[in-house]
Design a protein around this nucleic acid. Sequence first.
DNA 1: ACCGTAGAGATTGTTCAACAATTCTTCAAT
DNA 2: ATTGAAGAATTGTTGAACAATCTCTACGGT
Lengths: 245, 245
Amino acid sequence: MSTIDPAHPSGDDSDLDRVLHGVLAARRRERTVMSTSADRAARVVREQVVEGHLRSGTRLPEERLAAALGVSRNTLREALSQLVAERILVREPNRGVVVSTPDIDDVRDVYAVRRLVEPAALAHGTGHSPARIATVEAAVDEGQRAVAADDWPGVASANQHFHRAVVALAGSPRLDAQMHLLLAEMRLFFHLMGDPEPFHRPYLDENVTIARLLTSGERQTAADRMTDYLIAAQAQLVEAFASQG
Amino acid sequence: MSTIDPAHPSGDDSDLDRVLHGVLAARRRERTVMSTSADRAARVVREQVVEGHLRSGTRLPEERLAAALGVSRNTLREALSQLVAERILVREPNRGVVVSTPDIDDVRDVYAVRRLVEPAALAHGTGHSPARIATVEAAVDEGQRAVAADDWPGVASANQHFHRAVVALAGSPRLDAQMHLLLAEMRLFFHLMGDPEPFHRPYLDENVTIARLLTSGERQTAADRMTDYLIAAQAQLVEAFASQG
DNA sequence: ACCGTAGAGATTGTTCAACAATTCTTCAAT
DNA sequence: ATTGAAGAATTGTTGAACAATCTCTACGGT
């Protein structure tokens, strides 16, 4: 339709068409980021949950929550649908949504995914650019600095950055997005557990080792270390869940 | 709370409590499956898209679609939010939702995920039960029967079952769900391409080989075959996209 | 005291109607 | 052929409403 359709074979306009088409696409992307108020509401609730201000099991009554967020109940429900799809919230039919309470099987499953994906990203990922490897190293440094400052929330955060950076070595936006969701679930686990230190202290050195192996190109060895790492971390979390959660 | 709260330390009631708690959880799951009308609407639209009755790029006007599905516009919007999250639809702000039109980068990314996950599930999956291996073999048989009947949609369907069964070897519900979404996207690719035969014919024998290797316990070899398979399939699809899509 | 139950109150699932903001169409004027 | 402006159509969002379902409480029977 009109001059902006690149399918139209109008001779020397084709270059212009391509450019204009690109401009349109860019504007569309631009608007996509500011997004709708349902998305904004979802972002706020998501933040509150992963930061631990809304704890597992908390009910989220639609009317009060909508009022608090300054949106209508209908708009809020769109937001909640999103978060349910992300597994951050759970919908109990006719009872509303609650902040999800992961059980021991969720822990096992999340680690099953991670044990499959993270070592594979290290060993066989097709996106091992210097920049991405540098991001892994940066996350390790961030963790070292945080532990030196005795900042355990900071260590937890750095640890997430580390694992996201590892998955990013696969070079796949879809995998990155998936890992983002998994790590959000992980934060729910830790909020159930309380003190984060015992769950991060043992693995700081491992992060350093894996990063070093990665830098020196020993990808398979790095992957094997990551496998052991994840098995140990899973065992620790499962045990903690079994004994207290 | 009342008698069904397992946190209540009431001596020998704890066994009973656990049982009752389980019953409640089961009922909740039960109700979850019949689900809301937004979910039903989402299922109908999803079906129409993956079956190819709604083609890439088609606009989905809210008013008409809501009327067609017999739900209100608000309810429909909840359904559409879900499908946007699944990448089956794309929301263009102030312009509504359209059936998503995957581009060549989407093809590459979907295959990047598959190349990471599927071989890893074969080589390192922790759910290689006889039953799951039998499911893989059943999918191969299904494909052989379909090709014998010259039923190419049937072959395509069997092929999906094969790959889902392979991923299921990881024993992870989350990974299964993720793979389900990826395969739905794959169907969009194929609908853009037209005739499914050239995209499935070359890989039928590979499926047989991989299943055989799996049955005989040669997991790493099976994984390597799968890697080659996926690289070839990706190359074919990328080329087809570049030349016509 | 214990149990079941009826009914009141609250919350969800869903619909309808409306309106501002934005996009698409049409069509006349240059 | 391009521009611009009025008009129609669609989306984003709201508010109010109502039936269905769930929760809690108080009551009465045993």
